[in-house]
């Protein structure tokens, strides 16, 4: 495994970004958790630090915590940055939470331009507004699409521009039905 241990990195960065925490997922994968206010500073430091040098953003995604059976239940959108260093050949995961009602995060497209596309996707599918993003439009769905489809409480639309998706007599098996299964 090339994943970097989170604790030494957190100790190194704590002075500049006090909200940083080294955590592990339920199955023991290390990651850094940070408050949105410190996010851009932390990622910039991670990119520029000589010993860390995370020069590439490998992935930026999110997942919905609504009804996720965690120890501390939350209804936030969890955004995930997966970083990779071409210099030192190690990777690191950084996570932060965006509140569901006022879903805002600072943009990281200033740190890596690769984030421009990833953030557009997260905005489209989860409705996270990235403040300061140069071109925040929907990328997958049509511009007049209603709702953010990958949220867990998304209700499937019956029609789009008056045309139904479905064949005659067919019904969606949407998320709520899935939970009952």
């Amino acid at each position: 495994m090339t994943a970097l241990a989170a604790e030494p990195v957190a100790a190194r960065m704590r002075q500049r970004t006090p909200s940083i925490e080294a955590r592990t997922t339920e199955n023991g994968q290390p990651f850094l958790f940070v408050a949105p206010a410190d996010l851009v500073l932390l990622l910039t430091l991670l990119r520029d630090d000589e010993d860390l040098r995370f020069d590439a953003l490998m992935d930026l995604t999110a997942y919905d915590l609504l009804k996720y059976p965690a120890k501390a239940p939350s209804d936030a959108i969890c955004a995930v940055w997966l970083l990779w260093s071409h210099v030192h050949r190690h990777e690191l995961m950084v996570q932060t939470h965006a509140a569901r009602s006022d879903c805002r995060l600072p943009t990281t497209s200033g740190v890596w331009p690769a984030a421009i596309y990833f953030e557009r996707e997260v905005f489209d599918l989860y409705g996270v507004h990235f403040d300061g993003h140069p071109d925040l439009r929907r990328i997958m769905c049509p511009q007049d699409w209603v709702g953010h489809p990958l949220r867990k409480d998304y209700v499937y639309p019956a029609t789009y521009h008056g045309v139904s998706h479905l064949r005659d007599g067919q019904h969606f098996e949407s998320q709520p039905a899935r939970e009952a299964r």
């Binding site: 997958m140 769905c141 489809p149 998304y154 499937y156 639309p157 045309v163 998706h165 479905l166 064949r167 067919q170 969606f172 098996e173």
Partner: peptide
Amino acid sequence: FSKWSYSVLNG
């Protein structure tokens, strides 16, 4: 994609 997709037209 007919059953679970929200964006695919079924036919």
